[in-house]
Design a protein around this nucleic acid. Structure first.
Lengths: 192, 192
DNA sequence: CCCACATGAGACATCTTTGTCTCATCCAAG
DNA sequence: CTTGGATGAGACAAAGATGTCTCATGTGGG
């Protein structure tokens, strides 16, 4: 039945195109629609049939990024166990999506004061909540606001993603180096 | 004498234009040459007389950013005293330039693998050196590479600059919140 | 006063990207 | 085999940004 085939093919193709676009735009955020199409192995016409324009493509990527963030948040079970371990789990679960997230992170900087997507607000709230939980439980220091800890996490994720892309650090170190720095800082701890 | 007036006026105008462009591009990295000119209070023709094109303007901004970084590095006297205090001084001295630096930081992500400016390499080396010094002196932990600590500092500076621009955190908190997070991390320390 | 020179305003061509369109091709279902 | 639908290739105009040009203006120094 053409309907079934149509729906399925569109779905997988759309997924593949989005993945390719994310991978390309992560490296070259100013890539043209033509380059995006070539990277996905399709023609510009087909790309334009699936995404009405560049805006639509970016918005679809944003939706994908939000979905992956929320999935990672679910998997990380932020409300279980020590907050520090929860943050560690979150970073680990977020890792496969950090390329896309780094692109969206820098992209959103130029949406001046426009409409703040409700999806990001929800994600912000969930991330902020785990930092607040850690503070309330006496696990995290209270002189750094949860809002700043959240922004710092985003910044470190982007910095880590770009460092890996540039080959400045090993991909395997991604999760621990972000978690260790965010939680423990650079200063050496006195071992008891 | 026209030569003196010419030279002096060009200098201050150039400085003013660069500052305005930096302030604008920090908020809207895709601003047009026309917008940059308007922001500086000059016409597009005059802007184009001072900077051959957009590339030249961005390169001039990069040179300005590099110069400010090196000046901040000089003022911070990274090789004096405890490395942690040196990093704190560096963040404080860098603070006025972080808007420009955040713009250049995200801008450089799309210079794919192009020529790495020698200026940034020198700055990287100096920043990396202070982290290495801290490790050698037993002050910093050694399981986080100096290269990663350097990249993390850049990421936190950019995240802090954008957070201040978005009004998510107070400008006065900029230096301490970055320094405290980078050095001490989010975990609460056991007070002796 | 006069003049050199920087400036502002705007016209203009060019380039790139985008969005839309047409048409030939291919493939898979019927 | 036939045919509907998706695709690729390419032409096309529109829009935006850029780079270049000319000309009028204003100002400061001689």
């Amino acid at each position: 039945m053409s309907h079934v085939g149509y729906g399925c093919l569109m779905a997988v193709d759309r997924e593949h195109v989005l993945r390719s676009a994310a991978a390309l735009l992560t490296r070259k955020s100013t890539a043209t629609m033509d380059e995006v199409a070539k990277a996905a192995g399709i023609s510009r016409a087909t790309l334009h049939r699936q995404f009405a324009g560049r805006d639509a493509l970016v918005r679809a990527l944003e939706a994908l990024g939000i979905a992956e963030c929320e999935a990672a948040l679910d998997r990380a079970r932020l409300d279980e166990g020590p907050a520090g371990e929860a943050v560690r789990r979150l970073i680990r679960e977020l890792e496969p999506a950090t390329g896309l997230l780094a692109f969206l992170y820098s992209e959103n900087q130029l949406f001046e004061g426009e409409e703040q997507n409700a999806g990001w607000a929800r994600i912000d709230a969930r991330v902020t909540a785990v930092f607040r939980r850690g503070q309330d439980g006496g696990e995290f220091r209270i002189d750094l606001s949860p809002a700043w800890l959240t922004e710092a996490l985003y910044g470190l994720l982007a910095a880590g993603a770009w460092s890996v892309l540039d080959g400045k650090v090993a991909r395997n170190d991604f999760t621990p180096m972000i978690a260790e720095l965010l939680l423990g800082g650079a200063l050496r701890r006195e071992e008891p």
